[in-house]
Design a protein around this nucleic acid. Structure first.
Lengths: 199, 199
DNA sequence: TACATTTGCTTAACACTGTTAAATGATTTA
DNA sequence: TAAATCATTTAACAGTGTTAAGCAAATGTA
């Protein structure tokens, strides 16, 4: 019967509706506000229905994660194909990555587990600024010959911290590589930035 | 009366017990397993008691965050004082940061919001590996003159990704700097790594 | 057409979560 | 001894993810 097809089509549609509704809620209220009952509200069903399409909440997040990776791959591929030289390709691909992260902020968050914490932590907790301030002072010393502006010091700190936080994150979230590789990457990254300051 | 002091001392102790219990639970079962009732269980009280010491759960996390920043600041200060040259100081401080992140993994997580997601995502979701694989291929092209090993390509990707993820994270979590600064840092970081590959 | 079965969906419930208000019982104060 | 304060618990509310039971309409079968 052809009605089987129609029913299947409807089922496929509600599956997509569930994913769309989830993303919509997250965009409006953030990840922590996403609940099964809220999703059900949006798609105009009751909560248990969702379990006919996804085995649990985690499965929904996983599907959105997949969706994110597909978009990211598409964007990076397109960026690559605009250039011939590998150096240019690489740069373009990472710019695509950067743009994706902010164009699809919510997907990036579920893909890489970035918490949306309180911003401006230092405002309510001065201790939180101490380590950064300490590093900035040393950077100022190091850059002294160049007479850096406050902003240049900040930018350098920012680059440093990004590398460090990135390395730490990937090692905590997906504890992959050996300690040897880590030390190597770490030393290379720090050395590289320091050299770029001096040079 | 001196008994006032004794009682105050006991109260102070319970406050510390709450924090210790929280950290203990997190170390054993992870952040998502931390609940008020579980904390109460460990300190051998019932849940509402905790609200005499902390206004809510968030306040406990905030106190642990503060604790983390104090330890991090102490460690980085000690590392700095072992050297005279700013370059060496900087390196030592970031190594201290690195060591802190893993010695006090749980504190680092609550400080910087690193989600403890499923590891080995690519195993259960092949799509998740596509972007990384794409980049690795270009890196291989770029490094072709050096005839890199699989591991060297991987390490380079790893460094790239760390910078990117670090930059993105700080911009999502604490959306601070201007787009201009971001583009600047981004271009410098990518350019720097590419140059270090070629050189 | 009449009965049986499957399907789609809801209601109800369980075991949790953070949090608050009320009740209890012991200790201190007058 | 009576009153008042304090420490602590029990009970409850509203929310969470998830499962089981029930109902009612659509479908298959005789």
């Amino acid at each position: 019967m052809a009605s089987k097809d129609r029913i299947q089509r409807l089922k496929d549609e509600t599956r997509i509706n569930i994913l769309d509704a989830s993303l919509q809620i997250v965009k409006e209220e953030g990840w922590q506000a996403l609940s099964m009952r809220k999703i059900a509200d949006v798609i105009e069903y009751t909560a248990p229905i969702i379990y006919e399409y996804f085995s649990n909440k985690e499965a929904i997040l996983l599907e959105l994660t997949r969706k994110g990776f597909l978009i990211l791959a598409r964007d990076m591929k397109a960026a690559k194909e605009k250039h011939r030289l590998p150096g240019k390709q690489l740069e373009a691909m990472w710019f695509a990555y950067w743009n994706f992260a902010f164009a699809e902020k919510e997907l990036y968050q579920v893909m890489f587990g970035v918490d949306v914490n309180c911003c401006e932590l230092g405002k309510i907790m001065p201790e939180a600024d101490v380590p950064a301030d300490m590093v900035c002072e040393v950077i100022k010393d190091l850059m002294a010959p160049h007479k850096p502006t406050e902003d240049e010091v900040c930018t350098t700190y920012y680059t440093f911290w990004s590398v460090m936080h990135g390395l730490v994150s990937i090692n905590i979230v997906r504890k992959g590589r050996s300690d040897e590789t880590n030390k190597q990457v770490l030393k290379a990254a720090i050395g590289g930035i320091i050299r770029s300051i001096k040079g």
